[in-house]
Design a protein around this nucleic acid. Structure first.
Lengths: 110, 110
DNA sequence: AATATATACATAATTTTCTTATGTATAAGA
DNA sequence: TCTTATACATAAGAAAATTATGTATATATT
């Protein structure tokens, strides 16, 4: 994912937020979108992404729809209602995380 | 550590930064300091903290000094020179992480 | 005096999340 | 023809945490 270990635990937040923005996306598209948005800083590996998508689907946060484009398989994922609610939670947690870490590394400013 | 998984991977950064601020600290003191600075948001568990301290020491980032206070053992940790350099790296990584995540969750602002 | 809580360390089993490696298959470009 | 891009998947292993224990002393409460 990156040389930094801080991204551990962030993958679900990233997936959910992207699906919240783009309605429906397929796995490979997510990897490319993340690469583009972060200017190459962050690369989502397939070994991390696909199991994560399967798990989110199993938990009922994502719905999947299979399509065939140019004779190739695509699995489009979209948020369920529960998934949309969970996205809000994840984003709140991210904001809280950033606030907390800033309190720790920059105690004078907080 | 917290209900949020985002803290996974942040523990070393937190330890190094606190030691950078406070010169020398012992394990239990670190747990209390984190609790206080984050107003209870973040609780470092012993099962995470002590192995992390041992590893940082084994990697040469921390020096340890044992003391007896009130007939109880304390292990004071302090940054080595390498540890101080690594603290700078970790803080840069944290800043980069926050920047990257903001690009992902708030693409319009970036 | 007895009991609970706080201080202070430690580790072992398990879980979660990721990396690395590998596999299949089609399309497009050099 | 061969490499790169597209598109999925999983398995083995590593890393970092959780949860559960364990030891021991000091202090506060009942």
């Amino acid at each position: 994912m990156s040389n930094s270990k801080l991204y551990k635990g962030s993958l679900n937040t990233i997936i959910l937020k992207l699906l919240n923005e783009h309605d429906k996306m397929y796995g490979y598209e997510i990897t490319q979108k993340v690469k583009a948005l972060t200017k190459g800083e962050l690369k989502i590996t397939e070994g991390a992404l696909y199991p994560a998508l399967h798990k989110l689907e199993a938990e009922g946060l994502l719905d999947v729809e299979v399509a065939k484009v140019d004779n190739r398989l695509r699995k489009y994922y979209k948020l369920t209602e529960t998934g949309t609610k969970e996205t809000v939670n994840k984003l709140e947690e991210l904001a809280e995380y950033i606030k907390t870490m800033q309190a720790l590394v920059n105690p004078k400013l907080v």
